Simulated scan of single mutants.
Amino acid sequence: MERIGVLTSGGDAPGMNAAIRAVVRTCVYYDMIPYGIYQGYEGLIKNDIEKMDAGSVKHIIHQGGTILKSARSDAFKTEAGMEQAWENIQENNLDGLVVIGGDGTFTGAMRFGQKYDFPIVGIPGTIDNDIYGTDFTIGFDTAVNTVVEAVDKIRDTATSHNRLFFIEVMGRDAGFIAVYSGIAAGSEEILIPEEDRGIEKLFDSLARTSKRNKSSRLVIVAEGDKNGSVYDLEDRVKEEFGDRYETKVTILGHVQRGGRPSCTDRVLASRLGVLSVEGLREGKRDVMVGIRDRSVRYTDFEKATKQNPKMDDELLRIADIISI
Protein backbone atom coordinates (compact mmCIF):
# COMPACT_ATOMS: atom_id res chain seq x y z
CA MET A 1 0.00 0.00 0.00
CA GLU A 2 2.07 2.89 -1.32
CA ARG A 3 -0.33 5.18 -3.22
CA ILE A 4 -3.76 6.14 -1.91
CA GLY A 5 -6.40 8.22 -3.67
CA VAL A 6 -8.94 10.32 -1.78
CA LEU A 7 -12.20 11.78 -3.07
CA THR A 8 -15.37 13.45 -1.82
CA SER A 9 -18.72 12.52 -3.32
CA GLY A 10 -22.38 13.45 -2.99
CA GLY A 11 -23.51 16.43 -0.95
CA ASP A 12 -20.81 18.50 0.69
CA ALA A 13 -20.55 18.70 4.47
CA PRO A 14 -18.54 20.92 6.84
CA GLY A 15 -15.49 18.96 7.95
CA MET A 16 -14.77 17.24 4.64
CA ASN A 17 -11.66 19.38 4.21
CA ALA A 18 -10.44 18.38 7.66
CA ALA A 19 -10.87 14.73 6.63
CA ILE A 20 -8.98 15.27 3.36
CA ARG A 21 -6.20 16.96 5.30
CA ALA A 22 -5.96 14.05 7.73
CA VAL A 23 -5.86 11.46 4.93
CA VAL A 24 -3.12 13.30 3.04
CA ARG A 25 -0.95 13.96 6.07
CA THR A 26 -1.35 10.42 7.38
CA CYS A 27 -0.11 9.14 4.03
CA VAL A 28 2.90 11.44 4.28
CA TYR A 29 3.52 10.31 7.87
CA TYR A 30 3.69 6.68 6.71
CA ASP A 31 5.85 7.49 3.66
CA MET A 32 2.97 6.88 1.28
CA ILE A 33 1.95 9.04 -1.68
CA PRO A 34 -1.52 10.65 -1.54
CA TYR A 35 -3.50 11.54 -4.66
CA GLY A 36 -6.47 13.89 -4.72
CA ILE A 37 -9.32 12.97 -7.06
CA TYR A 38 -11.46 15.94 -8.10
CA GLN A 39 -15.25 15.89 -8.60
CA GLY A 40 -15.74 12.54 -6.89
CA TYR A 41 -16.26 9.46 -9.06
CA GLU A 42 -16.65 11.73 -12.08
CA GLY A 43 -13.02 12.79 -11.62
CA LEU A 44 -12.00 9.16 -11.34
CA ILE A 45 -13.57 8.54 -14.75
CA LYS A 46 -12.06 11.67 -16.31
CA ASN A 47 -8.63 11.03 -14.74
CA ASP A 48 -8.77 14.34 -12.89
CA ILE A 49 -6.23 13.07 -10.37
CA GLU A 50 -3.38 15.02 -8.80
CA LYS A 51 -0.48 14.06 -6.57
CA MET A 52 -0.60 15.81 -3.21
CA ASP A 53 1.70 16.45 -0.25
CA ALA A 54 1.45 17.93 3.23
CA GLY A 55 1.56 21.44 1.82
CA SER A 56 -1.39 20.73 -0.48
CA VAL A 57 -3.75 20.70 2.48
CA LYS A 58 -2.43 23.61 4.54
CA HIS A 59 -4.95 26.17 5.82
CA ILE A 60 -8.02 24.09 4.95
CA ILE A 61 -9.02 22.51 8.27
CA HIS A 62 -11.26 25.50 9.07
CA GLN A 63 -12.91 25.74 5.64
CA GLY A 64 -16.37 24.45 4.78
CA GLY A 65 -17.13 22.57 1.58
CA THR A 66 -14.43 20.47 -0.07
CA ILE A 67 -11.29 21.54 -1.94
CA LEU A 68 -11.58 18.39 -4.05
CA LYS A 69 -15.08 19.45 -5.14
CA SER A 70 -17.96 17.01 -5.19
CA ALA A 71 -20.34 15.68 -7.80
CA ARG A 72 -22.83 12.91 -8.37
CA SER A 73 -21.84 10.67 -11.27
CA ASP A 74 -24.40 8.78 -13.32
CA ALA A 75 -21.58 7.49 -15.52
CA PHE A 76 -20.01 5.66 -12.56
CA LYS A 77 -23.19 3.59 -12.28
CA THR A 78 -22.52 2.08 -15.73
CA GLU A 79 -20.13 -0.71 -16.69
CA ALA A 80 -18.33 1.59 -19.14
CA GLY A 81 -17.89 4.27 -16.49
CA MET A 82 -16.46 1.87 -13.93
CA GLU A 83 -14.15 0.35 -16.54
CA GLN A 84 -12.76 3.79 -17.37
CA ALA A 85 -12.28 4.56 -13.67
CA TRP A 86 -10.41 1.28 -13.24
CA GLU A 87 -8.10 2.08 -16.14
CA ASN A 88 -7.26 5.44 -14.57
CA ILE A 89 -6.58 3.82 -11.20
CA GLN A 90 -4.12 1.47 -12.90
CA GLU A 91 -2.55 4.32 -14.87
CA ASN A 92 -1.88 6.21 -11.63
CA ASN A 93 -0.74 3.03 -9.83
CA LEU A 94 -3.17 3.57 -6.95
CA ASP A 95 -3.23 0.83 -4.33
CA GLY A 96 -6.33 1.92 -2.44
CA LEU A 97 -9.03 4.58 -2.11
CA VAL A 98 -10.52 6.62 0.69
CA VAL A 99 -14.01 7.88 -0.21
CA ILE A 100 -15.74 10.56 1.86
CA GLY A 101 -19.51 10.82 1.56
CA GLY A 102 -22.78 9.15 2.39
CA ASP A 103 -25.01 6.29 1.32
CA GLY A 104 -24.66 6.79 -2.44
CA THR A 105 -20.90 7.18 -2.15
CA PHE A 106 -20.56 3.93 -0.24
CA THR A 107 -22.89 2.06 -2.60
CA GLY A 108 -20.68 3.03 -5.53
CA ALA A 109 -17.55 2.11 -3.59
CA MET A 110 -18.96 -1.30 -2.67
CA ARG A 111 -19.85 -2.17 -6.28
CA PHE A 112 -16.52 -0.96 -7.63
CA GLY A 113 -14.38 -2.54 -4.92
CA GLN A 114 -16.04 -5.92 -5.32
CA LYS A 115 -15.96 -5.85 -9.12
CA TYR A 116 -12.23 -5.13 -9.33
CA ASP A 117 -11.11 -6.58 -5.98
CA PHE A 118 -9.80 -3.16 -4.99
CA PRO A 119 -9.35 -1.91 -1.40
CA ILE A 120 -11.62 0.99 -0.44
CA VAL A 121 -12.37 2.49 2.98
CA GLY A 122 -15.17 5.01 3.48
CA ILE A 123 -15.49 8.01 5.79
CA PRO A 124 -19.07 9.09 6.65
CA GLY A 125 -19.53 12.72 5.60
CA THR A 126 -23.13 13.98 5.53
CA ILE A 127 -25.01 16.56 7.56
CA ASP A 128 -28.04 14.25 7.88
CA ASN A 129 -26.30 11.81 10.26
CA ASP A 130 -28.15 9.00 8.49
CA ILE A 131 -25.36 6.42 8.12
CA TYR A 132 -25.43 3.18 10.09
CA GLY A 133 -22.24 2.25 11.93
CA THR A 134 -21.23 5.55 13.53
CA ASP A 135 -22.74 7.68 16.27
CA PHE A 136 -22.18 10.87 14.28
CA THR A 137 -21.22 11.74 10.73
CA ILE A 138 -18.91 14.55 9.67
CA GLY A 139 -20.90 17.76 9.21
CA PHE A 140 -23.83 16.94 11.47
CA ASP A 141 -22.67 18.91 14.49
CA THR A 142 -21.94 22.01 12.41
CA ALA A 143 -25.29 21.79 10.64
CA VAL A 144 -27.19 21.50 13.92
CA ASN A 145 -25.36 24.50 15.36
CA THR A 146 -26.18 26.48 12.21
CA VAL A 147 -29.86 25.61 12.60
CA VAL A 148 -29.92 26.49 16.30
CA GLU A 149 -28.33 29.87 15.62
CA ALA A 150 -30.92 30.60 12.93
CA VAL A 151 -33.84 29.44 15.09
CA ASP A 152 -32.67 31.59 18.00
CA LYS A 153 -32.87 34.61 15.72
CA ILE A 154 -36.28 33.61 14.39
CA ARG A 155 -37.57 33.32 17.96
CA ASP A 156 -36.74 37.00 18.53
CA THR A 157 -39.20 37.90 15.76
CA ALA A 158 -41.72 35.27 16.87
CA THR A 159 -41.71 36.69 20.41
CA SER A 160 -41.95 40.29 19.28
CA HIS A 161 -45.05 39.62 17.16
CA ASN A 162 -46.66 36.63 18.90
CA ARG A 163 -46.17 34.53 15.80
CA LEU A 164 -46.14 30.81 15.08
CA PHE A 165 -43.19 29.83 12.89
CA PHE A 166 -42.86 26.62 10.90
CA ILE A 167 -39.14 26.07 10.24
CA GLU A 168 -38.11 23.45 7.72
CA VAL A 169 -34.70 21.82 8.14
CA MET A 170 -32.91 19.24 6.02
CA GLY A 171 -33.66 15.59 6.52
CA ARG A 172 -35.50 13.85 3.68
CA ASP A 173 -35.20 10.39 5.24
CA ALA A 174 -33.85 11.10 8.73
CA GLY A 175 -34.90 13.58 11.40
CA PHE A 176 -31.70 13.89 13.41
CA ILE A 177 -31.14 17.56 12.56
CA ALA A 178 -34.74 18.35 13.47
CA VAL A 179 -34.65 16.49 16.79
CA TYR A 180 -31.31 17.82 18.02
CA SER A 181 -31.94 21.41 16.93
CA GLY A 182 -35.54 21.28 18.12
CA ILE A 183 -34.49 20.28 21.63
CA ALA A 184 -31.61 22.77 21.71
CA ALA A 185 -33.71 25.67 20.43
CA GLY A 186 -36.76 24.93 22.59
CA SER A 187 -39.31 24.24 19.86
CA GLU A 188 -42.89 23.42 20.73
CA GLU A 189 -43.10 20.51 18.32
CA ILE A 190 -40.72 18.46 16.18
CA LEU A 191 -41.94 16.62 13.07
CA ILE A 192 -39.71 13.94 11.53
CA PRO A 193 -39.95 11.20 8.85
CA GLU A 194 -39.34 8.35 11.31
CA GLU A 195 -42.43 9.05 13.40
CA ASP A 196 -45.76 9.98 11.88
CA ARG A 197 -47.70 10.80 15.01
CA GLY A 198 -50.39 12.60 13.03
CA ILE A 199 -51.41 16.20 12.63
CA GLU A 200 -53.65 15.90 15.69
CA LYS A 201 -50.63 15.80 17.99
CA LEU A 202 -49.51 19.13 16.56
CA PHE A 203 -52.99 20.56 17.05
CA ASP A 204 -53.07 19.35 20.66
CA SER A 205 -49.66 20.89 21.34
CA LEU A 206 -50.69 24.24 19.87
CA ALA A 207 -53.97 24.25 21.78
CA ARG A 208 -52.11 23.52 25.02
CA THR A 209 -49.61 26.33 24.54
CA SER A 210 -52.41 28.70 23.49
CA LYS A 211 -54.05 28.32 26.89
CA ARG A 212 -50.76 29.34 28.50
CA ASN A 213 -50.53 32.48 26.34
CA LYS A 214 -47.02 31.75 25.16
CA SER A 215 -45.49 34.72 23.36
CA SER A 216 -43.86 32.63 20.62
CA ARG A 217 -44.21 29.19 19.10
CA LEU A 218 -41.74 27.32 16.93
CA VAL A 219 -42.35 24.06 15.07
CA ILE A 220 -39.28 22.35 13.58
CA VAL A 221 -40.12 20.23 10.53
CA ALA A 222 -37.76 17.83 8.77
CA GLU A 223 -38.23 18.12 5.00
CA GLY A 224 -39.25 14.45 4.77
CA ASP A 225 -42.04 14.65 7.35
CA LYS A 226 -45.06 12.58 6.33
CA ASN A 227 -47.60 15.34 7.09
CA GLY A 228 -46.60 17.28 3.98
CA SER A 229 -44.62 20.44 3.35
CA VAL A 230 -44.34 23.29 5.85
CA TYR A 231 -46.79 25.23 3.67
CA ASP A 232 -49.29 22.37 3.90
CA LEU A 233 -48.91 22.39 7.67
CA GLU A 234 -49.43 26.15 7.79
CA ASP A 235 -52.66 25.81 5.78
CA ARG A 236 -54.00 23.03 8.00
CA VAL A 237 -53.25 24.99 11.16
CA LYS A 238 -55.13 27.98 9.73
CA GLU A 239 -58.08 25.70 8.93
CA GLU A 240 -58.08 24.32 12.46
CA PHE A 241 -57.46 27.47 14.48
CA GLY A 242 -58.67 30.27 12.21
CA ASP A 243 -57.18 33.64 13.13
CA ARG A 244 -55.87 32.50 16.49
CA TYR A 245 -52.33 32.26 15.12
CA GLU A 246 -50.34 34.52 12.84
CA THR A 247 -48.21 31.97 11.02
CA LYS A 248 -44.94 32.28 9.13
CA VAL A 249 -42.78 29.78 7.26
CA THR A 250 -38.97 29.69 7.05
CA ILE A 251 -37.06 27.15 4.96
CA LEU A 252 -33.39 27.14 5.97
CA GLY A 253 -32.26 25.17 2.92
CA HIS A 254 -28.63 24.90 1.91
CA VAL A 255 -27.40 27.37 4.50
CA GLN A 256 -27.24 24.26 6.69
CA ARG A 257 -24.49 22.76 4.51
CA GLY A 258 -22.13 25.72 4.65
CA GLY A 259 -19.92 27.45 7.17
CA ARG A 260 -16.79 26.68 9.10
CA PRO A 261 -16.87 23.22 10.72
CA SER A 262 -17.28 23.08 14.47
CA CYS A 263 -14.53 21.82 16.77
CA THR A 264 -16.43 18.54 17.11
CA ASP A 265 -16.55 18.02 13.35
CA ARG A 266 -12.88 18.94 12.89
CA VAL A 267 -11.79 16.44 15.53
CA LEU A 268 -14.08 13.70 14.21
CA ALA A 269 -12.91 14.28 10.62
CA SER A 270 -9.26 14.26 11.65
CA ARG A 271 -9.70 11.08 13.63
CA LEU A 272 -11.55 9.24 10.87
CA GLY A 273 -9.09 10.46 8.23
CA VAL A 274 -6.17 8.93 10.09
CA LEU A 275 -8.05 5.70 10.80
CA SER A 276 -9.10 5.29 7.16
CA VAL A 277 -5.49 5.25 5.97
CA GLU A 278 -4.39 3.00 8.82
CA GLY A 279 -7.28 0.69 7.98
CA LEU A 280 -6.08 0.34 4.40
CA ARG A 281 -2.55 -0.35 5.67
CA GLU A 282 -3.95 -3.11 7.86
CA GLY A 283 -5.75 -4.75 4.94
CA LYS A 284 -9.26 -3.39 5.54
CA ARG A 285 -11.51 -3.13 2.47
CA ASP A 286 -15.20 -2.64 1.64
CA VAL A 287 -15.75 -0.96 5.01
CA MET A 288 -16.66 2.39 6.50
CA VAL A 289 -14.78 3.67 9.52
CA GLY A 290 -16.84 5.26 12.28
CA ILE A 291 -16.94 5.96 16.00
CA ARG A 292 -19.47 4.19 18.22
CA ASP A 293 -19.50 4.57 21.98
CA ARG A 294 -16.18 6.43 21.68
CA SER A 295 -14.51 3.43 20.05
CA VAL A 296 -13.42 2.79 16.47
CA ARG A 297 -15.79 0.63 14.44
CA TYR A 298 -15.37 -0.68 10.91
CA THR A 299 -18.71 -1.46 9.28
CA ASP A 300 -19.17 -3.35 6.00
CA PHE A 301 -20.38 -1.11 3.19
CA GLU A 302 -23.35 -3.41 2.67
CA LYS A 303 -24.51 -3.01 6.25
CA ALA A 304 -23.78 0.73 6.28
CA THR A 305 -25.91 1.27 3.17
CA LYS A 306 -28.72 -1.20 3.85
CA GLN A 307 -29.43 -0.44 7.52
CA ASN A 308 -30.74 2.84 8.87
CA PRO A 309 -29.58 4.32 12.17
CA LYS A 310 -32.38 4.26 14.72
CA MET A 311 -33.72 7.47 16.17
CA ASP A 312 -33.18 7.63 19.92
CA ASP A 313 -36.62 7.22 21.52
CA GLU A 314 -35.28 8.81 24.68
CA LEU A 315 -34.60 12.05 22.80
CA LEU A 316 -38.16 12.10 21.48
CA ARG A 317 -39.51 11.50 24.99
CA ILE A 318 -37.38 14.34 26.36
CA ALA A 319 -38.54 16.64 23.57
CA ASP A 320 -42.18 15.95 24.47
CA ILE A 321 -41.63 16.59 28.17
CA ILE A 322 -39.77 19.87 27.91
CA SER A 323 -41.99 21.36 25.20
CA ILE A 324 -45.07 21.78 27.46
Rank of each mutant, 00 (worst) to 15 (best):
residue 3 R to V: 04
residue 6 V to M: 13
residue 8 T to R: 10
residue 10 G to M: 02
residue 12 D to K: 09
residue 14 P to I: 03
residue 15 G to A: 09
residue 18 A to L: 11
residue 18 A to G: 05
residue 22 A to V: 00
residue 24 V to Q: 01
residue 24 V to S: 00
residue 30 Y to D: 06
residue 34 P to D: 00
residue 42 E to P: 06
residue 46 K to V: 03
residue 48 D to Q: 15
residue 48 D to L: 08
residue 52 M to T: 03
residue 59 H to G: 10
residue 59 H to R: 12
residue 65 G to Q: 05
residue 70 S to A: 10
residue 77 K to F: 06
residue 88 N to K: 00
residue 88 N to F: 02
residue 89 I to R: 01
residue 91 E to C: 07
residue 93 N to T: 04
residue 94 L to W: 02
residue 96 G to N: 03
residue 105 T to M: 02
residue 112 F to M: 06
residue 113 G to L: 04
residue 120 I to Y: 00
residue 126 T to H: 03
residue 128 D to K: 08
residue 129 N to W: 09
residue 130 D to S: 06
residue 140 F to W: 10
residue 142 T to P: 04
residue 152 D to H: 13
residue 154 I to L: 08
residue 157 T to C: 08
residue 172 R to V: 15
residue 173 D to K: 12
residue 175 G to Q: 05
residue 179 V to H: 04
residue 187 S to C: 15
residue 187 S to F: 04
residue 187 S to H: 04
residue 191 L to D: 05
residue 195 E to S: 07
residue 198 G to E: 01
residue 207 A to F: 07
residue 210 S to M: 07
residue 212 R to Q: 11
residue 215 S to V: 06
residue 218 L to W: 02
residue 228 G to K: 01
residue 229 S to V: 00
residue 237 V to K: 01
residue 237 V to D: 01
residue 238 K to N: 10
residue 240 E to L: 09
residue 241 F to Q: 08
residue 242 G to H: 12
residue 246 E to C: 11
residue 247 T to F: 06
residue 254 H to M: 13
residue 255 V to D: 01
residue 263 C to M: 12
residue 265 D to M: 13
residue 270 S to K: 09
residue 271 R to I: 07
residue 273 G to C: 08
residue 273 G to D: 06
residue 274 V to R: 08
residue 279 G to K: 07
residue 280 L to A: 03
residue 284 K to V: 03
residue 287 V to H: 15
residue 294 R to C: 11
residue 295 S to I: 09
residue 296 V to L: 14
residue 297 R to D: 14
residue 298 Y to K: 04
residue 299 T to E: 15
residue 300 D to A: 15
residue 300 D to V: 02
residue 301 F to I: 10
residue 301 F to H: 05
residue 305 T to I: 12
residue 312 D to A: 13
residue 323 S to R: 14
residue 323 S to Q: 08
